[in-house]
Amino acid sequence: MTDEWILRKLKKGDPAGLQALMERYIPYVSAVVWNILRSAMPAEDAEEVVSDVFLAAWEQAEDLRPGSVKAWLGAVARNKAKNRLRRMGRELPLEEDVLELPGADSPEEDAQRAEEAAQVRRAVESLPQPDREVFLRHYYYAQTVREIASYMDLNESTVKTKLRRGRGRLKELLTRWGV
């Protein structure tokens, strides 16, 4: 069964499409949500968040495109989990998560947000491998330094160095582009 088949079903409002979507992507979406929420709530509550991600896919099926279903689900899962964490007054335990950037507050208008998102994407894509993977594992998927070191067979100090380098590069480019 392909993503195209799943999307056809979803867009027709056919529950079989949702069932197939879950069968394919539940492990991934669960991993994204759990990485972010594991220190803040029991598994049962995180299951509710995962369920909400698939409900979003059901309701916003028109936004899904073949080839980017997994990425879409990952982004929605991450944002829903982060929002839940924020509502609980908690923060992600990340390495030096704050960047000092010149300029005004975060953009409020859609056009500005889209512009900033495009520049962030370009900046992240400009990171060399494996620095980019280390950077995304930590700041996007909320994996700990120890987990990343283990998964990628690196020293923890090497992971921290790559994270520092990634932050520096991001700050440099965003500053240059005037974000």
């Binding site: 669960s30 995180a46 990425a71 982060k82 960047l99 962030v120 992240v124």
Partner: peptide, 30 residues
């Protein structure tokens, strides 16, 4: 101004990093 790196990535859709699936969640219940 101060911005969180993790917030800057909110609109990103990541396609090329494969993460490990080890969440202790019940897929059936979901």
């Amino acid at each position: 101004m101060k911005r969180k790196v993790s917030d800057l990535l909110d609109d990103l859709e990541v396609t090329d990093v494969e993460i490990e699936y080890s969440a202790p969640l019940s897929y059936r219940r979901i």
